[in-house]
């Protein structure tokens, strides 16, 4: 009896193993399925140099000497547009990009259905709903230090560092956020792949490359000697966030 049972189980396992193998090995081009698409954001300094933390940099816009110790921000609500005009929307799409882990952070879009994609859309910041709906988890956990305790809402971008030019004792700290009224910094960006389309076919190599330029934080705000600290929503936060978010550009796609 036992032996028969064992045999049965072995046969079943074998069948499953064969079935699984079969699916992987056959080189047919499947028409349905999903794949991972990687969104990469390269951060550049002076348009050509790579941005880096804990490195002395000079802002070409203001002449300020800057050494960043922290640079992190939220990207959320990522969508891809198919060539038939429909959208694939990533569920629960919230990511905190921390440049301490590398200045070309990437986001994995899992479960993207096979197809031809022509556009990417995303939100810089955290949508207002998640700012007013109580305790969140994952990338939105308040324990990550990106939530204002006394004036509820996400710090959507945190840039801190040292600067001999700063008005505040040699350091700067910009905590930018705000989700309502004229203080709303949350920005939806979209880029078309300029005539190309991203073929998601299951090869696992699909990438979308974007770029952003941290020095643009000061594009309108001017030198750190004018104002080296922001820690609440308001016009100062809005100006700096708008300028930085405006620097996001589409670079290219890979397959």
């Amino acid at each position: 009896m036992k032996n028969t049972f064992k045999l049965g189980v072995t046969a079943l396992v074998l069948t499953i193993a064969v079935a699984c193998k079969k699916e992987k090995i056959e080189p047919t081009t499947p028409t349905t399925g999903t794949d991972v698409v990687t969104l990469k954001i390269e951060h550049t300094w002076q348009d050509s140099l790579e941005f880096a933390l804990n490195t002395d940099l000079v802002n070409p816009l203001t002449g300020d000497s800057l050494n960043f110790t922290t640079f992190k921000y939220y990207i959320s609500n990522i969508r891809l547009k198919k060539n038939d005009g429909t959208w694939w929307t990533q569920p629960n799409s919230y990511f905190l990009l921390d440049l301490a882990n590398g200045t070309t952070p990437s986001v994995q879009l899992t479960g993207v259905p096979y197809g031809e994609y022509t556009d990417v859309e995303y939100v810089l910041g955290v949508d207002s709903t998640r700012n007013v709906s109580g305790a969140q988890d994952g990338a939105l956990s308040p324990s990550l230090g990106m939530f204002w305790s006394w004036n509820s809402g996400y710090i959507m971008l945190k840039a801190e560092g040292l600067s001999p030019d700063a008005s505040m004792g040699g350091s700067f700290a910009y905590h930018l956020g705000g989700f309502s009224g004229s203080n709303n910094v949350v920005t939806t960006k979209s880029h078309t792949f300029v005539g190309n389309s991203l073929s998601v076919t299951g090869n696992g190599n699909c990438q979308i490359h974007l770029s952003a330029a941290p020095q643009t934080l000061w594009q309108t705000a001017g030198s750190v000697s004018m104002n080296s600290m922001i820690h609440m929503p308001g016009s100062g936060a809005k100006t700096m966030a708008d300028d930085f978010y405006g620097s996001f550009e589409f670079e290219h796609i890979h397959e």
């Binding site: 324990s143 509820s152 809402g153």
Partner: peptide
């Protein structure tokens, strides 16, 4: 200033003159 009861405790928990603790350390 606080818009939801679930995030209200973060203020007294982390305020240096109240409970002076980080959420990460409480965890």
């Amino acid at each position: 200033g606080i818009n939801h009861i679930e995030v209200m405790p973060i203020a007294p928990l982390t305020n240096p003159v109240e409970m002076n603790e980080s959420l990460a350390n409480i965890i």
